[in-house]
């Protein structure tokens, strides 16, 4: 296993040969095409040769990915390629699935996430997550946002009020719900619920935010709002997000990782991935000629 922050393994020659999909489908070895431009960036999360199995089915193959601090990194790839699986592995949400087995390691700020004795609860407080489907608690809007503080034992009403307002403002929901903070969160629209979930994740003040297709259920206006929100949050938070929307990835992210059949195929600055991908497969995928 290599140390974090070392030079990424790039084999442009192999990539230019093309036929990565065929190689992968045939089970032949391959190397991730990681752009050199990623090297100078300071990584907050290092994923090192990470494998994951659901029972006997392998879902992730030797993923190696460094997520730069304070930037937005997009995960793209066809459905079922393991984006959510990878995302959920970062805050060890996959622990909840009894059949999951992993190999390899991930690090957050240089500390291993998977070594024995890691306090998963503390870990999840540092890595917030927003799920593909909005999942507000059946409680009031206020209590939804206050939840991360409540579980930490915060009872001071002033602190709670302040955090709720700040989080809702950050999530761009404040103006819509300021008059009905005590109304049930289930009464909100799908887009509002998703922003509420983002607000809830922010309220916990995590360093890293994992967003799993946060806009999949939203109209263009709501999507635009969330993209704006991501731009605002960036810098303060490190964001790792899954998206199927190429424009969104292009607009909102700094870096893009392209996954295919459980493998990380190409990883680099978004601009490079979309304008000058190293691999033909990546180009086909981002231009919609994939299939």
């Amino acid at each position: 296993m290599t140390e974090s922050g070392t030079v990424p393994r790039v084999r442009p020659q192999a990539a230019r040969l093309g036929g990565v999909f065929e190689a992968v489908s045939a089970g032949l070895p391959y190397e991730t095409a990681t752009h050199e431009a990623m090297a100078p960036k300071e990584a907050i999360v290092n994923i090192r040769d990470f494998d994951l199995w659901y029972g006997a089915t392998r879902a992730l193959y030797r993923i190696a990915l460094d997520v730069p601090r304070g930037e937005v990194t997009a995960l793209i790839g066809p459905s079922g390629c393991g984006k959510s699986t990878l995302l959920r592995s970062v805050n060890r949400m996959n622990d909840l699935i009894a059949t999951v087995r992993i190999e390899g390691d991930m690090r957050l700020d240089g500390e291993s996430l998977y070594s024995a004795g890691v306090d998963v609860i503390e870990l999840r407080k540092r890595i917030g997550m927003v799920f593909q489907k909005p999942n507000p608690f059946p409680m009031s809007i206020y209590e939804n946002i206050a939840y991360p503080l409540r579980i930490d034992g915060v009872k001071d009403r002033k602190v709670l009020d302040e955090v709720v307002e700040r989080s809702l403002r950050s999530a761009g929901l404040w103006d819509e719900v300021r008059d009905r903070l005590d109304a049930s969160a289930l009464r909100l629209s799908g887009g509002q619920q998703q922003r509420l979930c983002i607000g809830r994740a922010i309220a916990g003040n995590p360093g890293v935010l994992l967003l799993d297709e946060p806009c999949s259920a939203l109209d263009p206006i709501a999507t635009g709002r969330i993209e704006d929100l991501i731009q605002e949050l960036k810098g303060q938070y490190t964001i790792l997000m899954v998206t199927h929307n190429m424009q969104q990835a292009q607009r909102a992210s700094d870096n893009t990782a392209f996954m295919y059949l459980g493998r990380l195929v190409e990883y680099g600055p978004t601009q490079d991935i979309f304008v000058g991908p190293r691999l033909k497969e990546t180009e086909d995928y981002v231009t919609g000629r994939f299939g």
């Binding site: 949400m93 909840l96 503390e122 999942n135 579980i151 916990g204």
Partner: peptide
Amino acid sequence: PRELREASLGCGATPWQTAWR
């Protein structure tokens, strides 16, 4: 729904807090 449990655990709640709250 499993999503609610995941949301709670994802916020850093313990299993007991998730169960109870």
